[in-house]
Simulated assay, not measured.
Amino acid sequence: MSNHLSEIFNPEYWLGFFSENLSTWDIIVNVLDIVVVWFLIYKLFQLVRGTKAVQLIKGVAVFIGIRILAELIGLHTLSWLMNQIITYGVIAAIVIFQPEVRRGLEHLGRSSFFKPTKKEEREDEQMILAFDKAIQYMSKRKIGALVTIQRHTGLDEYIETGIDLDADITGELLINIFIPNTPLHDGAVIVKNGKLAVASAYLPLSDSMLIPKEFGTRHRAAVGISEVSDALTFVVSEETGGVSLTLNNDFLHDLTREEYLKIMRRELIPDERSVKGRKSLWQAFIDGVRGGK
């Protein structure tokens, strides 16, 4: 396996794909081979974008870069060391990140090259309308709320801290959960696979100094979960009734009904834009949410 890796990182190996001794057909096949490999790498980055696995891939890229540089310069000992790390590091990474690998493969299995069905779109829209009903009720009465919607990154470690619900998503249930002085009102509700998975869950608090001081623990928890996952989280402030959203470390606060609904539909209802790549929450906001474009 080490010999194969050495060939991959050897520039002469790649130049051989376009050797003058090859026929036109062989060159076409080699070009197609390279294009397919880069397409698979691109799809891999799309799959892990916004997840903790991105940090792992960055680390692997650093080792590969050092390996190529060592080969070009002629640092044989360093090159050999990088070979060993890359060879056995792949096996170690699979063992260490087994839950993430499993979730990634499950997500890949659920992926489709076709547009989502009308049934899926209706279910997502019904979920958003349930959120909207609860937000409107709680915002007017200044009832604090914190709801996190799991997307690609698994939230099992945080789900385990909550109280099991496994309930259908309705506005009425969300309102009842967050009524002050009830057993479940303190903590976060986590939504998983179209269900209210748990209530009263604990989320990681952000240490960011960029969060304005007027925002409390709920908002720091919302930003905190956005720093470690791609979950979409909404918060209703018990002081002002203001509505905030967090996603991928973006924090938008004091949103109007039209603004948060537009972002929720953009992020939670799959469509053709998911193939082209989504903008960040902040980019989506400045590109027209405030202006209603």
Results as ranks from 00 to 15, higher is better:
E125L: 11
P212Q: 09
I169R: 08
E267Y: 15
K119C: 00
T217E: 15
M138F: 08
G16Y: 09
E157F: 06
K52A: 14
L261R: 15
W38E: 06
V147T: 08
L40W: 11
R122K: 15
G162R: 04
A284N: 11
H253T: 13
E157N: 11
Q98S: 13
K140V: 05
R266H: 13
L210R: 10
S208L: 03
F113E: 03
N30T: 10
K142H: 12
F97W: 11
K279P: 00
E120G: 00
H4A: 11
A167M: 13
L247C: 03
K293E: 06
G241C: 07
M127Q: 12
H185G: 00
E157Y: 05
S274K: 12
L232C: 03
Q84E: 09
Q136W: 02
I41P: 00
H76Q: 14
T77C: 01
G224Q: 04
W14C: 01
D164F: 10
G224E: 03
G50C: 08
V62F: 12
S226V: 02
D271W: 09
I263F: 08
K195L: 12
Q46G: 14
P204Y: 07
R266M: 06
E160A: 15
I8W: 13
I34E: 05
L165G: 02
E239V: 09
T148R: 01
I269S: 06
L268D: 07
T233H: 05
F63E: 01
V60M: 10
I269R: 07
S79I: 01
E71Y: 15
T148Y: 03
I68L: 14
T233I: 05
G171N: 05
L44G: 11
L81K: 05
P116N: 09
W38Q: 06
W14G: 00
L196Y: 04
Y202V: 10
A93W: 04
D26Q: 15
A53L: 15
L69F: 14
E123P: 01
F113H: 04
I143Y: 08
F45A: 01
D156H: 13
V198Q: 02
K195Q: 12
L32S: 13
M138E: 04
I135N: 02
H76C: 00
L129A: 11
T182I: 04
K43W: 13
V62K: 06
E123K: 15
A221C: 10
G65Q: 07
L203I: 07
V236F: 10
V90R: 03
P204L: 05
D250K: 02
T256N: 07
P270R: 13
L196F: 05
R220P: 01
A92S: 06
L22K: 13
L281M: 14
P183C: 08
L232T: 08
H4F: 14
I175C: 08
D186Y: 10
D166S: 12
L155Y: 11
F17E: 00
I64D: 00
V60A: 12
D156K: 14
V60K: 09
I86P: 03
M127G: 01
R67V: 01
I8E: 05
G89D: 08
